[in-house]
Nucleic acid binder design. Structure first.
Length: 415
RNA sequence: CGGGGCGUAGUAUACCGGUAGUACAUCUGCUUUGGGAGCAGACAGACCGAGUUCGAUUCUCGGCGCCCCGACCA
C-alpha cells in the first residue's frame, strides 16, 4: 500500500474528549473513527488489524474442532421471550419495525444457536459439537468507556458447545483454555485465567481471561510464583495473602482487562428450547452447553494499552496491519525514489506486506508517523543507504537500527 | 442511572456583553529535504432552543452530545 494513496492521515493531537490511551493512539494514527459514545468505525488500517486478530482466533478455534458460522444479529423477539431474556437482560437492545413487529439485536447468541443445534444434533453420535462465529455484538451499556474497551457495538468471537455430559464439557473447557492462551500469546499478551461468578444468566461458574493493565475494569489478585489468579469481586482473597494454590507466593493485586470468558451454561438453554438428544440407551436427555467469548475489538484495545510507548503503537507481528513500513527519504532525488519503488515491488513479490511511505514529506514527519502507526519493522531507503548498497532496518520494539545489504533483505523477513 | 466536568474552523486552543485570534491540517506559489521545515497568500468556526439585554459566542434556564468517578456489567 502506498501511503500517498492511504486515505487516512495521522494527527499530532488527540481529540480532547478521548482520554484512554487506546482511543487516543488509534484515532491519531487513523485506525478508527468515533461515531458516538461506545461506537467506532474501523478504517483501513484498523480493519487490517482486526481482521488479523480474527484470523488468529479462527485458526485456534478451527484447530480444536470449532466450526465457523455467521449467525444473524437481528433476532426474532420470540426467541428472547422463550428464554426470559427479553425482560431480564437489561443490556438487550430492542427495536420495533414500522409494522410494530419486535426484534432484538444480538448481544450474545444462545437464543439463536440453541435452536440451530437442536435441528442438527439429535443423537449422542452428533455430540460434542462446537460452533462459533466472529461478528458484531450490541449491548445497551449504561456507560460506554475506555475507547474501544467497552462499547455498545463491538466485535466478538463467540463459540458454543453441546455435550453429552458435564465431564465432557469439563474436558472440552480444558482444550479451549489452551487454545485461548495461544490466541493471547500470538497477540503479544500475557493472559491469566480466573474463576468468577457466572453473572445473571448462569447459576454456575465462569472463567475469565485477564490481561494486566490499568485500563482494565476488573480488580484481581494473582500469584507471581504460579498461575493462580482470582477476581476480587467473587473471592475473599486479597493482596498479601499466601497463594492458595502453590502456597509459596504472596498474592498481588492489580487492574486487569477481561479479554475472554467461558461460561458453563448447564442445561438452561436446551431446556428453554426443549433441545434433547437420544442417548445410546434410547432415552432423551438435555445436552450440557458451554459458551466461550473473546472480544476482538477489546483485544485490539488491550494490545494498544499494554504494548504502546510514548511514541505510539507497537503491534506484534502477527496482528500488525503490515509487516514492514518502507520509508523513502528522497530529498527530491529521483534515483532514491526509484530505488524505493523497486524495493516496494520486490518486497510485495516476496509476499511481504508493506506500507510504503512514498509521500513528499520530510524525514522527521515520516519517522514520527511510522512510530505512531506502529508497524513492526521500518526500512529506510535514502541517498546514504544507496551509497552503501543496502537499507537501514529499525525494529519498532527496540528502536535500534541495523544496516543490511540489499541481497539480504528478503531473508531478514523469512527468519 | 446518580455525581462532576466540558461543548469555539477538520483538529487542538485563546480572548471577549459590541459577530472571534493563534497553531496544525487543507489549497496556491517559491525555497527547503535523515527527526513533525521557512516565507507569502487563501479557505474555514461559537451544539440546539428559550430567557435577560439596545446588543449574547460570552450571563441564566432547558435540551442534546462527549469525557471522567460511581453504580451496573450477558
Amino acid at each position: 500500500m502506498r501511503q500517498s494513496h492511504l486515505f487516512t492521515k495521522t494527527r499530532k493531537s488527540a481529540p480532547k474528549d478521548e482520554v484512554s490511551k487506546n482511543a487516543q493512539l488509534l484515532i491519531r494514527a487513523g485506525y478508527i473513527h468515533k461515531e458516538m459514545a461506545g461506537v467506532y468505525s474501523y478504517l483501513p488500517l484498523g480493519l487490517r488489524v482486526l481482521t488479523r486478530i480474527e484470523q488468529v482466533i479462527r485458526e485456534e478455534m478451527d484447530a480444536i474442532g470449532g466450526q465457523e458460522t455467521k449467525m444473524a444479529t437481528l433476532h426474532p423477539s420470540e426467541n428472547w421471550k422463550q428464554t426470559g431474556g427479553w425482560d431480564n437482560v437489561d443490556v438487550l437492545f430492542k427495536l420495533m419495525s414500522r409494522t410494530e413487529k419486535e426484534y432484538a439485536l444480538g448481544q450474545s447468541e444462545e437464543e439463536i444457536v440453541t435452536p440451530i443445534g437442536q435441528e442438527y444434533a439429535s443423537s449422542y453420535k452428533d455430540l460434542p459439537v462446537a460452533i462459533y462465529q466472529i461478528g458484531q455484538k450490541y449491548r445497551d451499556e449504561l456507560r460506554a468507556k475506555s475507547g474501544i474497551m467497552r462499547g455498545r457495538e463491538f466485535g466478538m468471537k463467540d463459540m458454543y458447545s453441546f455435550h453429552e455430559t458435564q465431564d465432557d464439557f469439563d474436558r472440552f473447557y480444558g482444550i479451549v483454555k489452551e487454545a485461548y492462551f495461544k490466541v493471547y500469546s500470538r497477540c503479544g499478551l500475557d493472559a491469566k485465567v480466573t474463576e468468577a461468578s457466572g453473572g445473571a444468566f448462569s447459576e454456575k461458574f465462569s472463567y475469565e481471561f485477564m490481561v494486566l493493565t490499568d485500563a482494565g475494569e476488573d480488580d484481581i489478585v494473582y500469584c507471581e510464583k504460579c498461575t493462580h489468579c482470582a477476581n476480587v469481586e467473587v473471592s475473599s482473597q486479597k493482596e498479601g495473602d499466601t497463594c492458595p494454590k502453590c502456597s509459596k507466593g504472596e498474592l498481588k493485586s492489580a487492574k486487569a482487562a477481561e479479554v475472554g470468558n467461558v461460561f458453563d451454561l448447564g442445561q438452561k438453554y436446551p431446556k428453554a428450547f426443549n433441545f434433547t438428544f437420544k442417548t445410546n440407551d434410547g432415552t432423551e436427555q438435555y445436552p450440557v452447553m458451554g459458551c466461550y467469548g473473546i472480544g476482538t475489538t477489546r483485544l485490539m484495545g488491550t494490545v494498544v494499552e499494554v504494548l504502546s510507548d510514548d511514541k505510539g503503537i507497537v503491534w506484534p507481528k502477527e496482528i500488525a496491519p503490515y509487516r514492514v513500513h518502507l520509508i523513502g527519504i528522497t530529498g527530491g532525488n529521483k534515483d532514491v525514489a526509484a530505488e524505493a519503488d523497486k524495493l516496494y515491488d520486490h518486497l510485495q513479490e516476496n509476499g511481504i506486506e508493506v506500507l510504503y511511505d512514498d509521500r513528499d514529506a520530510r524525514a522527521g514527519e515520516k519517522f514520527a508517523d511510522s512510530e505512531l502507526i506502529g508497524i513492526p519493522t521500518r526500512i529506510v531507503v535514502s541517498e546514504k543507504t544507496m551509497q552503501e548498497g543496502g537499507v537501514e532496518v529499525v525494529e519498532r520494539t527496540t528502536g535500534t537500527a541495523a544496516f543490511i545489504q540489499d541481497s539480504g533483505i528478503i531473508e531478514y523477513f523469512q527468519k
